[in-house]
Every structure is written in C-alpha cells, then in structure tokens.
C-alpha cells in the first residue's frame, strides 16, 4: 500500500468515476433534494457521515464475519441491515449528543436508508477488493464526489428556477437536461487516472 495509491483513489472517486454523474448511484436524492442549496448541503453532510461509516462497518462485517464463515451469499441482506440499523443508531445518538446537528441533518437520515449510493459504495469497496485503509479513503472520497455533484446541481437549479423556460421543459425535464450537461463536463475527466 502506497500513499500515492490513496491519493489516486481520492481523485478518481471525486472527479473521474463520480458516483452520481458517472456510475448513476444515488440518483433519487440527486434529483429529489437538489432544489435548494440549503437542503443539498444538509443531505451532502449526512451522506458523507453515513457513507463513510456504513462502508467501514460493511467492510469489517464482510471480511470478519461473512468470509470466514463462508456466508457470502448473505451479503445483500447483511449489508442492507447494517445500513438500516446504522442509520437508526446515528439518528438516536445524534439526537442525544448534539441536538443542533440533529436539527440540521436529522430529516435526511431516514431518506438515506434507501439511498443506493450508500449500499453501492459498500458493495463497490468489496468488489474492488480494497484493503481496509483504501476502503475508508474510498468511501470518504465517493461521498465527497456525491456532495460535489449534488451541490453543483443545486446551485444551477436555483438559477434555472428564476429563469423563463418553456412550459414543456419545466420540472424534472430541465433538471435531467442540466444533469446531462453536468455529466458531460465530468466526462472530460475520463481516462485521466486509473488504479
């Protein structure tokens, strides 16, 4: 394991293989909570927090429970349960320890259980055969990548909202087209780096 490798993982999963714009994970929150910058920032922080923790826990469970006992076929059930209970735990702890943080992130936490980016990151970390430290860095970078995409789209949508667009294009259509152009821009990073 080299330090350079970790740096490569960070850049790849923020820019090149962006979870949302290149791998299509977490599209529902991407389209759903990007109307206001404020909610987009809240959701992003909640995702960074939960995705890093969920991937770490899922990685540990896979390598120390599922693999030694040859229970790999339980991967899907185990991961989704880990994520669902982790989200519940984080919500409870946050409410007790930091009510201020809970006010900000709390409403996004239940939504995160069905955010496929979280489950996707946990599965990808196993599929890419990352070692522990790589999995941690990967999850954090992937979550930052998600946040970058979400905040960018929210910024654009706030302006689109005020502009005069054809009635036929209003609502989800213009959001999808905006996302398409955003994805086109990120496509420029293709092939810059690989592991």
């Amino acid at each position: 394991m080299e330090f350079g490798n970790l740096m490569a993982i960070i850049f790849i999963y923020i820019l090149v293989d962006n979870l949302v714009l290149h791998q299509f994970l977490g599209i529902c929150p991407f389209l759903g909570v990007s109307r206001k910058m404020e909610t987009a920032l809240g959701m992003s922080m909640a995702v960074v927090f939960v995705m890093t923790m969920a991937t770490v826990v899922a990685w540990l469970i896979f390598h120390f429970v599922l693999e030694p006992f040859d229970l790999m076929f339980l991967q899907i059930v185990a991961f989704i349960l880990v994520i669902a209970s982790l989200v519940q735990l984080v919500e409870t702890v946050m409410r007790k320890v930091s009510p201020a943080l809970y006010q900000g992130l709390g409403i996004f936490l239940p939504l995160i259980t069905t955010n496929c980016a979280i489950m996707g990151a946990a599965l990808l970390a196993i599929q890419e055969e990352f070692i522990f430290i790589e999995a941690v860095v990967f999850a954090f970078a992937a979550a930052i990548g998600f946040a970058v995409a979400l905040v960018l789209l929210a910024g654009i949508r706030e302006r689109v909202e005020e502009s005069d667009i054809s009635e036929r294009l209003q609502g989800p259509v213009v959001t999808l087209l905006t996302a398409g152009i955003l994805s086109l821009a990120f496509n420029g990073f293709q092939g810059m780096l690989s592991l």
């Binding site: 791998q23 036929r168 999808l176 398409g180 086109l184 496509n187």
Partner: peptide, 17 residues
C-alpha cells in the same frame, strides 16, 4: 456514455408528457 442517459431520459419525458 453517462451524459446520454440524462439527456435521452429528459427528451423522452417531454414526449411521454
């Protein structure tokens, strides 16, 4: 490519609507 998915779905939505 990935951008095509967003753009194609956007245009398809207009037609379906």
């Amino acid at each position: 490519l990935p951008p095509g998915a967003f753009i194609a779905l956007g245009v398809l939505l207009v037609l379906v609507n």
